[in-house]
Simulated assay, not measured.
Amino acid sequence: MKNHSLLLVAALALLPVPALADGPVKQTAAEALAAKAADRAEILAMAGNYKVRFDMQETTPWVAGYTPLERKISGGNEVVRVIEDSPDHIALQHLLVVEHDGKTHVIKHWRQDWDYQPARVLVYAGQGKWVWETVPERMRAGRWSQTVYQVDDSPRYAGWGQFETQAGVRRWRSNWTWRPLARRDAVRHPVYDRYYSINRHQPTPTGWIHWQDNTKMALRDGKPVPIVQESVLNTYERFDGYDVKAAEDYWTKTKDYWAAVRAAWTRIADTKGGIAIPEEAETGTVISARLLAIADDIQAGKITTAAGSAEAQALIDGRTAPIG
C-alpha cells in the first residue's frame, strides 16, 4: 500500500498544474514596459493581407429537444490595416475583397480597437443597447481591452484580458462578454437572442487565429438561459493573391468619412451614457445600410466627404437615444 501511494504521488507530480483563476498582473516597471512592447507588436502584426477561413459549429445543446445546426465553413480574402496607433491605443480595420461576375467588390468589415489598461469598456446590454462598464481597478494593470465594431462602426462587443504564453503559445484571452447575434444567426430568428462568450487571439507561423467559445442564450422569464454551445475558429493566413489594391483604393477615398463616423459614435457614447439604437436582423443597426451606401457614393465621386459626413452624423444623432 505504501509503494502504491508513493507511485500515485509521483504520477500526480508529472501532471500539469491547473491554471489558477486570473488575478491582478504583478510586474516590475521594467517587466511591464517590456510586456507592453511585446503586446503592441502582437496587435500590430495582425495587420496584413489574408485568406480567411470561417469555421462555425454548434456543439453541445443545453436544453432538451434542441438540435445543433450543421457545421458551416466559409471564407474569403481580407485586408487588415492599422488606422490608429498611439502608445495606449491601436485600431485595426478589416476590409473584405470579393470577386463576383468578373468584378472586384470591397466590403467594409469589422473593426477592432485595442486599449491599454482601460478604465471602462462599452459592452452589449441587450437588444440595441451598449453601456459603459468599469474594469475593476485591480485588473487593469498589464491588460488590454478589445472592442469590436460592426460594419457601420457601431459597437458590437468588448472585453479585456492579458497577453500570456502557455504551452509555448502566446495568446490574448478575453473575460466573459455579452454579444449580439451575428447576422448569420439573426436572419434565421432563432430561439436564442444573444451570446455569452470568451474569445482569444493567437499568432501562428503564417498569420493568426481568432477563436470564439459562444454560449447561445435566450431570455426566459427575464433571465438568460443557455440553449447551445458554439465553437468558431477564424483562421487568417497571409496571402496577397487577390486585388489588394481595390481595398487600398476604397480606404484612401473613404477613410476621412469613416473617421467622422467613428467620431460621431464616440461622441454619442460619451454624452448619452452609451449607445441605444434600433437593430434589424439583415443590417445590424437600422442606419447601417445607409452609412455604407454613403461611403460608396463618396468613393464613386457622387458626393463629397463633407456632405457624406454631415449626413452620417445627422443619422447617428437622430436614431440614437440616451441610455435609460
Score class of each variant (00 low, 15 high):
residue 275 I to Y: 00
residue 122 L to I: 04
residue 130 W to Y: 05
residue 307 A to L: 15
residue 242 Y to C: 03
residue 273 G to I: 04
residue 127 Q to M: 08
residue 275 I to S: 01
residue 313 Q to D: 10
residue 138 R to F: 02
residue 236 Y to H: 09
residue 190 P to F: 00
residue 136 P to Q: 15
residue 7 L to P: 13
residue 170 R to V: 12
residue 145 S to E: 03
residue 117 Q to G: 05
residue 29 A to P: 05
residue 308 G to I: 04
residue 41 A to T: 14
residue 172 W to A: 00
residue 102 G to T: 12
residue 99 E to A: 14
residue 166 Q to N: 14
residue 194 R to Y: 05
residue 286 V to K: 13
residue 93 Q to G: 01
residue 119 A to S: 11
residue 1 M to P: 10
residue 267 R to H: 11
residue 95 L to Y: 01
residue 203 P to I: 06
residue 155 P to V: 00
residue 202 Q to E: 15
residue 128 G to T: 05
residue 234 N to M: 06
residue 231 S to Y: 11
residue 3 N to I: 10
residue 106 V to R: 01
residue 271 T to L: 08
residue 266 T to S: 11
residue 270 D to E: 15
residue 287 I to C: 03
residue 16 P to H: 09
residue 264 A to H: 03
residue 156 R to M: 07
residue 312 A to F: 04
residue 137 E to P: 07
residue 153 D to Y: 00
residue 306 A to D: 14
residue 208 W to P: 01
residue 134 T to Q: 14
residue 191 V to D: 06
residue 46 M to I: 08
residue 315 L to G: 00
residue 4 H to P: 09
residue 126 G to S: 04
residue 230 E to A: 05
residue 302 K to Y: 05
residue 85 D to C: 09
residue 214 N to K: 13
residue 116 Y to N: 11
residue 263 A to N: 10
residue 317 D to Q: 15
residue 11 A to F: 07
residue 110 W to C: 13
residue 69 L to R: 13
residue 12 L to W: 06
residue 101 D to Q: 13
residue 279 E to N: 15
residue 288 S to Y: 03
residue 13 A to T: 10
residue 105 H to S: 11
residue 236 Y to L: 06
residue 16 P to D: 06
residue 20 L to C: 14
residue 187 V to W: 10
residue 213 D to Q: 12
residue 316 I to H: 03
residue 247 A to L: 07
residue 43 I to F: 01
residue 116 Y to L: 09
residue 227 I to N: 00
residue 265 W to V: 02
residue 251 W to T: 02
residue 80 V to Q: 02
residue 289 A to C: 08
residue 53 R to N: 11
residue 65 G to I: 06
residue 21 A to G: 14
residue 38 A to E: 13
residue 245 K to W: 11
residue 315 L to F: 09
residue 176 W to M: 09
residue 41 A to Q: 15
residue 135 V to R: 03
residue 219 L to H: 04
residue 72 K to C: 11
residue 319 R to H: 14
residue 43 I to S: 01
residue 235 T to H: 06
residue 185 D to P: 08
residue 321 A to G: 08
residue 188 R to Q: 12
residue 112 Q to H: 15
residue 62 W to H: 15
residue 225 V to Q: 12
residue 199 N to K: 10
residue 205 P to W: 00
residue 11 A to W: 07
residue 6 L to W: 13
residue 30 A to K: 13
residue 6 L to Q: 15
residue 227 I to W: 00
residue 272 K to E: 14
residue 140 R to S: 04
residue 145 S to H: 02
residue 178 W to N: 07
residue 23 G to D: 12
